[in-house]
Simulated assay, not measured.
Amino acid sequence: MKAVVNYESGNKKVELRDVEIPELGPKDVLINVQAAGVCGSDLHMYHDIQGFEVKRPVTLGHEFSGVIAEVGSHVKGFKPGDRVVSETPSYVCETCIYCRTGDYNLCPNRRGFGVLENGAMAEYVKSREAILHKIPDNVSFEKAALTEPSCVAYNAVAHHSQIRPGDYVVIFGPGPIGLMCTQIAKLFSPGKLLVVGTRKDQNRLELAKQFGADEVLISEEADVVQKILSRGDGFGPDLILDAVGISITLKQSIEAVRPGGQITKIGWGPKPINFSLDPLIQKAARLQGSFSHNYPMWEKVLLMMEKGDIDPLLIAKQYPISDWEKAFNEMDSLEQAKSILLPNQ
């Protein structure tokens, strides 16, 4: 079968290859992939600038949906022909305290699709029954493939953040996660919702407006911290969501956040921050990390898609798998917010 493979370390060491269809264990399912999203982490691996361990060669892709082609001998809840979407942990130990209490996304032995296990930018992918969800009838495969980034945003906004109607909320970064955070934050009726990006983000900042941002700021054209503080009562945002992987946005977040407010950090970045956290302490503000998601969040997000409360497909452009390089490069250049590969085209 055809697969987009990151075959060794180094810049742009990715190509379309013929690989074997995976074999199933008793609790596994084989999914005929209908749509696979390109994540920012896939682009980081494409350029070999990721801040996490990678087991190469590896088929990329952890955002996907499809149709079950085959099930293992112990699978009871799914059958061939079911339309499904899969969570991202290809393997968890199932015995640590995090697995036993439902926070298996924090399992220290977790291995994710497209990083430490073969992923879904391929015609077929093997997943586990325990992490499958049925796709609502009115949700397309392309939209369902973006359940994963939607869940990342849901976890950050609805689970890890304290957000109330009327709050002043700022989002750094109008990438796919930042845009989904915008959609979800809007559901909480914030008093003001502001999104910060760069000149290169112009197209994506326009999407942020469509998703409910009251205002957007271009970082090169203003003193971002002063602009943020000039809104509202002058004390700063109640909540800042940092969906950027560079240290400057965290520094700006600490400078801008309201005393007693919260910063939720979502974006990854391997470089040291090189600045003091004393202002965070002085403000008695909370810095909260947010990573991945778990089963109940997927069920909630799929329900929200079914009802039309959120629509991640509005940020995406679709490509046949043969155009994977174009899909990567156009997303990498910020020409569009999100790329989706269609392995059967």
Rank of each mutant, 00 (worst) to 15 (best):
E117T: 04
E117K: 03
N118R: 01
N118C: 05
N118G: 05
N118W: 14
N118F: 04
G119S: 09
A120G: 15
M121A: 01
M121F: 03
A122W: 09
A122N: 04
E123C: 01
E123Y: 08
Y124E: 05
Y124G: 04
Y124W: 09
Y124Q: 04
Y124V: 09
Y124D: 06
V125S: 12
V125A: 12
K126I: 07
K126L: 07
S127R: 08
S127E: 12
S127G: 12
S127D: 13
R128N: 15
I131P: 02
I131Q: 12
L132G: 01
L132F: 07
H133W: 11
H133M: 06
H133P: 05
H133S: 05
K134M: 08
K134T: 11
K134C: 06
I135G: 04
I135M: 04
I135S: 11
I135L: 06
I135Y: 03
P136S: 01
P136V: 00
P136E: 07
P136W: 04
D137M: 03
N138I: 02
V139K: 02
V139T: 02
V139F: 13
V139E: 02
V139L: 06
S140G: 06
S140R: 00
F141H: 03
F141V: 03
F141Q: 00
E142W: 02
E142D: 06
K143W: 00
K143F: 00
K143D: 13
A144Q: 09
A145V: 10
A145C: 13
A145W: 14
A145Q: 09
A145G: 13
T147N: 02
T147R: 02
P149V: 06
P149M: 10
P149L: 10
P149E: 06
S150P: 12
S150C: 12
S150V: 12
S150H: 07
C151M: 15
C151Y: 00
C151R: 06
V152R: 00
V152Y: 06
V152L: 13
A153S: 15
A153R: 03
Y154Q: 05
Y154C: 12
Y154A: 05
Y154P: 12
N155V: 04
N155L: 06
N155P: 01
N155C: 08
A156R: 02
A156M: 05
A156Q: 05
V157M: 01
V157K: 02
V157L: 12
H159K: 15
H159N: 14
H159M: 15
S161C: 03
S161A: 15
Q162K: 15
I163M: 15
I163K: 01
I163V: 15
R164G: 00
P165K: 03
P165E: 14
G166F: 07
D167S: 13
Y168S: 08
Y168K: 06
Y168N: 08
V169E: 13
V169A: 07
V170Y: 11
V170Q: 13
V170W: 14
V170R: 08
I171Y: 15
F172T: 08
F172S: 08
F172Q: 13
F172A: 11
F172M: 09
G173A: 10
G173P: 12
G173L: 09
P174L: 04
G175V: 10
G175H: 07
G175R: 00
I177F: 07
